[in-house]
Each structure stands twice: as structure tokens, then as C-alpha cells.
């Protein structure tokens, strides 16, 4: 627009923006400040700096990190392994499946598979969760490898649940890649798998970024699936499950709970600060497509 907004309007807008930011960030401030306090100090003054000390923070941290129900490093490691492996597998398997579906889109079977994937996105997790657990228990018994209290089992489940969305987004992208590119490679004597891994897959980089961010946010924060599969008192726990188990074991000891919450949100915030632009872009792209 060629007319500049008035200074006073800008000032008002700025003040409003600051106020909203303060409101939105206030809970984060509370988490940080109160993890520096002892429990009685929190109940006396939950907002201010009174009673906050670095020594208390260290002692809170010590109490949380080594707690039997929380075991921060174990939970963090489990969550990281599950998230990373699931994301890599989803990107690869999703790319492979989407490519095959896309390049056979004149054939009925490919359309049927695609339709089932799309339709399945409407299925809420609640309707499959109970039979899922029993199916996994039976399969685990059958193959004699535990599928329930194990990391591979959860990764398997995430590949199944994330598959539909991944194929959907990747398919939309692959459609736009000109087929001539592949044809040239076939004429040069490439096999289909070579065409995929050498030509198509590298081209998928930006859209794989999008699905990785979407799936990553979901898998890292997911509570219901791991809590059902791993159980709250199991050996293996993801971070959200560990938080839930920890809170369940401490009745309203807020200094401990908030320190645990702080530990649980730090990894996500660090990742966000590093890849802010990509994350925002990925979240928006995923919604629009």
C-alpha cells in the first residue's frame, strides 16, 4: 500500500502485540522461575522471584533427573531413538510407496490403495487403540518378540499411523515431478529402484522436510500410544509417559513437577530455536496441502 500507517496506530498495535506475547509466554516464565524454588516458597509466592535460588534449582534437578519414575536421560533417549528412527523410516517407506502409487495412477489398484490411505486419515486413534494393543500382544507372542514393551514395536506402530499422511503429502509433490526425467534415466538403462533412489528421492528433500516436521512434532509429543503400549510403570518410557508417571507418583509437589516440565519442554524449544523457519514453514505446508 502506498500510504504508510499512522505512527499512533503502529504504537497501539505494538503495545497489543507485546501484551499478548507476555500473556502467552507467562506460563513458560512461571515454569522456569518456580523450578528454582523449594515447595513451600512456591506456595507462598508462585509468581515472583522470592525464594528462588540456584542451589535449589540444582537440588530440584537432582531430585527429578534421578527419580525412579522419571529417569530423564532414559526417557529422553527413548523418545529420541523412537522419533528419529520412525521419521527416517517414514520418509523412506513413504517416499517409496508414494512414488509407486503416483506412477501407477492409471491403474485401479494404485487408486484403491491411495483412497484407503486418504480415507484412513479420518479414523480417530481411540477406535483402533484397544484392538491394536491386543493385536500387538498376539503378534508378539506369535513371533516371540515383544511388540508391546519395546522400542521396535512402537516404531512399527508409528510407521503404520504416520503412513497415510506421509503418502498423501509426498504424493502431491511427486505428481509435479515431470515424468520425462525418469524416462531419460530408463533409456540410459537404469532400473526402477535406481531411478527412485538416485533421481526421485533426492528431489523430495523439501517435502520430506515438511512431513518430518509434522510427524516429528506428533511423535515426540504423543502420549496415548506410548502410554498404552509401554504402560506407565514399564521399563521403557518416552518423555511424555515419564512425565505422567512422575506426576502420578508425586502428589502436588510442584517444585518437582515444574522442574520435570521444564526438562520436558527444553528439547523441543532448542529444536525450534535452531530450525524455526523450517518448522513454521513445514507446519503451514502440511496444513494447506
Amino acid at each position: 500500500m502506498n500510504r504508510e500507517p499512522k505512527k499512533s496506530t503502529l504504537a497501539i498495535q505494538f503495545v497489543i502485540a507485546v501484551c499478548i506475547a507476555l500473556y502467552i509466554l507467562f506460563p513458560f516464565f512461571l515454569v522456569v522461575i518456580n523450578s528454582f524454588k523449594y515447595n513451600t516458597a512456591i506456595s507462598e509466592d508462585p509468581i515472583g522471584f522470592k525464594g528462588a535460588s540456584f542451589e535449589q534449582f540444582i537440588s530440584n534437578l537432582d531430585g527429578v533427573v534421578n527419580n525412579d519414575h522419571f529417569k530423564f536421560w532414559n526417557a529422553f533417549g527413548t523418545s529420541a531413538i523412537i522419533t528419529v528412527i520412525s521419521l527416517v523410516l517414514l520418509a523412506m517407506f513413504g517416499g517409496m510407496a508414494a512414488w509407486v502409487i503416483c506412477r501407477n495412477n492409471k491403474k485401479a489398484w494404485a487408486n484403491v490403495i491411495y483412497f484407503i490411505f486418504i480415507a484412513s486419515m479420518i479414523i480417530p486413534f481411540q477406535v483402533v487403540m484397544l484392538p491394536l494393543i491386543s493385536t500387538f500382544r498376539d503378534v508378539g507372542k506369535f513371533i516371540n518378540i515383544s511388540m508391546l514393551q519395546s522400542i521396535p514395536g512402537i516404531i512399527f506402530a508409528y510407521c503404520g499411523f504416520g503412513g497415510a499422511m506421509t503418502v498423501f503429502i509426498l504424493n502431491g509433490f511427486i505428481k509435479g515431478i515431470p515424468f520425462e526425467l525418469e524416462e531419460a534415466a530408463y533409456i540410459d538403462g537404469c532400473l526402477p529402484e535406481q531411478v527412485f533412489f538416485r533421481i526421485i528421492f533426492p528431489m523430495l528433500k523439501p517435502v520430506i522436510m515438511t512431513v518430518t516436521i509434522l510427524n516429528g512434532m506428533w511423535i515426540w509429543n504423543d502420549f496415548l500410544l506410548p502410554s498404552l503400549m509401554l504402560g506407565l510403570n514399564g521399563e521403557v518410557k518416552t518423555l511424555p509417559v515419564a512425565v505422567q508417571a512422575f506426576v502420578g507418583s508425586y502428589v502436588k509437589d510442584w517444585s518437582m513437577i515444574l522442574t520435570a516440565a521444564l526438562l520436558a519442554i527444553i528439547p523441543m524449544i532448542v529444536v525450534f530455536l535452531i530450525g524455526q523457519k523450517q518448522i513454521v514453514q513445514g507446519m503451514v505446508d502440511g496444513a494447506i496441502k
Partner: peptide
Amino acid sequence: FLFPLLFTFAVT
């Protein structure tokens, strides 16, 4: 190429 995703999808 379809097998891994379809298999996990079917089971889960």
C-alpha cells in the same frame, strides 16, 4: 516398495 508401509498400515 509398497510392502513396508502397507504392511505396517494394515497391522496397526
